[in-house]
Design a protein around this nucleic acid. Structure first.
Lengths: 241, 241
DNA sequence: CGTGACGTTGACTGTAGTCAAAGAAGGTGG
DNA sequence: CCACCTTCTTTGACTACAGTCAACGTCACG
């Protein structure tokens, strides 16, 4: 039982037994990966996609001086580079942040799924498009928001996603990122991240210490950060707000 | 014959006759749309996807004060919101920039394609992932590049894409965007866009006037803007540089 | 106990935003 | 065909947000 209670950003009960079994069968042996390890490099031709069982990973692109821009942060239950299946060649790097456990899924086995299971195929397609929807919100965040809002917005996204897989209770959640990592995600320098976290703390919205975030006032944080979880397509899940 | 010589960002000869015919059949009547017209609004449930036959369109999200952040710019031959097919509900607005001609493609007809044509389905999936790859480069651009590079990078992308569909000769191409539009794409104010265009002009890299761009020194522009067309998956097409 | 990574703060710099005004360009109606 | 109006572009002066540089503090780990 590799695939977690929630899958591809959806509640698993949208998957029937058969489809779930097919996925389980497609996945290879789970293996551990150390923290801060490069898994796939830009330009690599990939023949596996990675299902993240446990830990935090990220995707990023480097600028000319080697400065990273994170493209996505991945949490347990994410199909990290499923898009590598149709694209074949990756346009960015993939690395672990913490120690992780991952399950490779050979593309050959995905071929059989696509040939035989149109509904599961649609779900897989959907899951890659969820990623694209998150990309769009990152574009919005980086293009239109000022520093405090960028950080708040990022924290809102991660919290909402962790809540779906049961890793946030809506108030506290683990976030094993350094301030430098946050900077690479939000297009800010580590120093400014530090200042903006202080700002969020002083506004009574968020506290962050030793890899754990506490949301002190979610409605206010959503308002400040102009965060609207529509793009996560959580539907009912988000009725509670 | 609606679908242009190049399709979904690919040379059409990757499509066989049958698949192409199926697509042609799926498309509804081509209709004109005036410039600066909102076609689909965030949150709308869509039952058609839009194939852009002619003109320029864009997708965008608004911040709280109604300021736009463009998410994508679309050129003739793009399947503008194919991702609306699996997602059903849109997370952003879609509007024309210039007068356009568009062909709606009902999702019901896409269902038949998915059921009957696995190869074409894969190509459609691929095309939505090309979009996602462009999103990633927008994230990089907005997060890591300074203003001149942002603009240069954007112009490089549009030029490369227009070249694929025969609308750029590699030096001059039409770009009917105002400086305010460019600002909305690059996360800059119109005033600063103006200054950075002057900068690009004075460096002898790019000239832009009355809706037409001239690339004066492409290699230098690529270098300055840290532009690497890998993410467009143009393959052979880009061997020429 | 020492070392290295991470976090925090202050002083200074520089890039981009804001405000304002005037000049071109393009479209419309008299 | 010209006059007018609107939209877009251009420039200057000023402001402010975020980056840079530097130093110090803190914590975890070997």
């Amino acid at each position: 039982m590799i695939f977690s209670k929630f899958l591809l950003g959806r509640r698993r009960d949208q998957l029937d037994e058969d489809d779930l079994a097919a996925l389980e069968q497609a996945a290879g042996e789970v293996r551990p990966v150390p923290p801060r390890t490069l898994l796939v490099e830009k330009g690599d031709v990939v023949s596996n996609s990675t299902y993240l069982v446990d830990g935090f990973m990220c995707r990023y692109m480097d600028d000319r001086q080697g400065q990273r821009q994170l493209i996505a942060v991945h949490i347990p239950g994410d199909f990290v580079d499923l898009h590598g299946y149709p694209l074949k060649k990756l346009d960015h790097d993939i690395a672990t942040i913490t120690a992780c456990r991952i399950a490779p899924v050979p593309h050959g086995r995905l071929d059989s799924i696509v040939a035989q299971r149109p509904r599961l195929t649609r779900l897989l397609w959907f899951s890659t498009l969820l990623d694209a929807a998150m990309h769009r919100d990152w574009i919005f965040r980086l293009g239109r928001l000022e520093a405090v809002k960028k950080l708040g917005h990022f924290l809102c996204e991660v919290e909402a996603r962790l809540r779906v897989v049961g890793l946030s209770d809506g108030i506290r959640f683990p976030l094993p990122l350094t301030q430098a990592d946050l900077g690479e995600a939000c297009g800010l320098t580590p120093v400014h991240v530090n200042r903006m976290l202080r700002d969020l703390r002083e506004r009574g919205l968020v506290r962050m210490q030793s890899g754990e975030v506490t949301i002190l006032d979610r409605p206010a944080l959503y308002r400040l950060s102009e965060f609207d979880p529509t793009y996560l397509y959580l539907d009912d899940f988000n009725a509670e707000r």
